[in-house]
């Protein structure tokens, strides 16, 4: 993947994450470079013959409970999984505008203590975004690989996919 495609991919993942959190009124106090006390990881795989990988939303149990409060939900663990699902959906729609599409898996949640992204990863294949919220640290991870010569088509292509919140009646 060339540098332009890589930058587009990173930009879309970052924008998809920020838009998702803003949509649910999650306050973000700038970026937080240090890993917080991550106890929960909600992850989904994705794949096609051209690109494959996984995304994850990672946080503490306390922050998961903070995230679910604005929507009057009761289960922070479940909501973290749904947020990860919606993050991958947003990212997928953005990639589709550049001719890259893939199938999505379903969210899986696992629990642990002091979980962090490995420090020696190839940053051309991994992205870690970290946010400070009033409920604690929240991280979004993307890990991916592409087939040889897969590039984002420069300039968004025609795409009929509906946007978030859009309703189609047949």
């Amino acid at each position: 993947m060339n540098e332009t495609s890589l930058q587009l991919l990173k930009q879309h993942f970052q924008e998809a994450t920020q838009e998702l959190l803003e949509n649910y009124n999650v306050e973000m106090d700038g970026s937080s470079p240090n890993s917080g006390s991550i106890e929960l990881v909600a992850t989904l795989g994705f794949g096609s013959d051209r690109v494959a990988g996984a995304i994850a939303l990672c946080t503490s149990a306390r922050c998961a409970d903070y995230l679910v409060k604005p929507i009057a939900g009761r289960n922070g663990h479940d909501w973290l999984g749904e947020l990860a699902n919606q993050l991958l959906g947003r990212f997928k729609r953005r990639c589709a505008r550049h001719g890259i599409t893939f199938a999505m898996g379903v969210p899986v949640l696992f629990r642990g203590e002091r979980i962090s992204m490995a420090r020696n990863l190839d940053m051309n294949r991994s992205i870690r975004l970290a946010f400070q919220t009033p409920g604690g640290n929240l991280e979004a991870w993307l890990d991916f690989k592409t087939s040889a010569n897969v590039e984002f088509l420069c300039g968004p292509i025609q795409n009929d996919a509906p946007s978030e919140g859009e309703i189609l009646l047949f």
Partner: peptide, 23 residues
Amino acid sequence: TEGQPELIERAKKAGAKGWIVKP
């Protein structure tokens, strides 16, 4: 959360009456 036109078309063809993208 899906918005892929091929999936929407499949749903329409199968008889779905509508599609909403989350959130």
